[in-house]
Simulated scan of single mutants.
Amino acid sequence: MDKFIRVFRWISILEAISFLVLLLIAMPLKYMFNSPEMVSTVGMAHGVLFVLYVMGAYWMYEKLNWSLKTLVIVIICSILPFGPFYADKKYLPNNK
Results as ranks from 00 to 15, higher is better:
Val74His: 03
Tyr31Gly: 15
Ser67Tyr: 01
Leu22Met: 14
Met27His: 04
Ile13Leu: 13
Tyr86Asn: 10
Phe8Asn: 03
Phe19Pro: 07
Met1Arg: 10
Ala26Pro: 13
Tyr61Leu: 03
Phe19Arg: 13
Met55Ala: 12
Ala57Val: 00
Ile13Asp: 06
Gly56Leu: 02
Met60Gln: 00
Leu20Glu: 09
Pro36Ser: 07
Arg9Lys: 10
Met44Ala: 11
Leu23Thr: 10
Lys63Pro: 01
Ser67Glu: 02
Asp2Lys: 12
Pro81Met: 04
Trp66Phe: 04
Phe8Gly: 05
Ile25Gly: 09
Asn95Ala: 10
Leu14Gln: 09
His46Tyr: 04
Tyr86Ala: 09
Val72Glu: 00
Thr70Ala: 06
Trp59Val: 01
Ile13Val: 11
Val42Asp: 15
Tyr53Trp: 02
Tyr31Lys: 06
Met44Gly: 09
Phe8Pro: 09
Asn34Ala: 13
Met32Val: 14
Leu23Arg: 10
Phe50His: 01
Trp59Asp: 02
Pro36Cys: 04
Met32Thr: 14
Ser78Pro: 15
Ala87Val: 05
Leu80Arg: 03
Glu15Cys: 15
Ala45Thr: 07
Leu20Gly: 12
Ala45Lys: 07
Ile17Leu: 13
Lys3Ala: 15
Val39Ile: 12
Pro81Cys: 04
Ile76Thr: 09
Asn65Asp: 06
Leu52Ala: 04
Leu64Ala: 02
Ala16Thr: 06
Cys77Arg: 10
Val74Ala: 03
Met1Val: 07
Tyr58Arg: 04
Phe19Trp: 12
Val39Glu: 02
Lys90His: 11
Phe82Lys: 07
Ile25Tyr: 08
Ile17Ser: 11
Ala87Tyr: 05
Leu24Ser: 12
Leu68Phe: 03
Phe33Asn: 15
Pro93Gln: 06
Lys30Met: 09
Ile13Lys: 05
Tyr31Gln: 05
Ala45Leu: 10
Leu68Tyr: 03
Ile17Asn: 07
Met27Glu: 02
Ile75Ala: 02
Ile75Val: 13
Val72Tyr: 05
Lys89Glu: 15
Met38Arg: 11
Leu23Gln: 12
Met60Val: 02
Pro36Leu: 03
Met44Cys: 12
Leu68Pro: 14
Ile11Pro: 00
Tyr86His: 04
Pro84Trp: 03
Ser12Val: 14
Leu49His: 01
Ile79Arg: 11
Met32Ala: 15
Ile79Tyr: 06
Leu20Ala: 13
Asn95Phe: 09
Val51Leu: 05
Val7Cys: 09
Val39Asp: 02
Lys90Asp: 04
Ile11Ser: 01
Tyr91Phe: 04
Trp66Gly: 00
Lys69Pro: 13
Tyr86Glu: 11
Met55Lys: 09
Gly83Lys: 01
His46Lys: 11
